[in-house]
Amino acid sequence: MEDTHSVKGLAHHFDDMEQQREAGTLGMWAFLITEIMFFGGLFMAYILYRSKYPEAFSSASGHLNWRLGAANTVVLIVSSLTMALAVYYSQTGNKRLLITMLVLTMILGATFLVVKGFEYHTKWVDHLIPGFGFEWHLAGDPQKVQMFYFIYFAMTGIHALHMVVGLGIMAVILRMAMKDRFTQTYHSPVEISGLYWHFVDIVWIFLFPLLYLLGAHEGH
């Protein structure tokens, strides 16, 4: 590194570590705001179609496996805890536990994707992929139910894509941690990647009740 400062990890255009961290945090939040608006548009579509077709949405939602959805919710919340702990151990300079927490976070993220994959496969077997021979024989207008599944796949699919990106980011952070790039004063990359990871968790916190629990009280 060609920076002229003596502090490891401090870029030359910042006065000190505090200013650098503040700038990084704000930059990440600016990006997350664009993500809020991006998912916001999808949630808007969900709200409108749900208010238009309440019965079909309830019936379609009742067919989703809420147990798998709940299991994935738990997986993501635990991964958010391990991510938060990774930030904690980067702040306290514990390299071994930082690496452990990053690996655990990645394992949990991968677990989420595997469960999601099984769910998608079941939908494929049950002919519930919109536009690909969609069939619906239960309560509700098939066209309207198809709209629910379209929104379901769009939202969970884009969320899953964010998980894949998150795993990529965590792989980079893990590599940096193993190469001793972080110190007790310089660890913003861990913290900022954590913000992204937690954001993806928040999106799922909303997706789970909205998609899976909508028709739960009507019994499946």
């Binding site: 954590g194 937690h198 909303f206 909508l214």
Partner: peptide, 22 residues
Amino acid sequence: NAIVALSIAVLKAMLVVLYFMH
């Protein structure tokens, strides 16, 4: 049902934003 589910989700999101995201 929807109001309670959304209130809980908002509360959970707030906890994550305020504490996990510092």
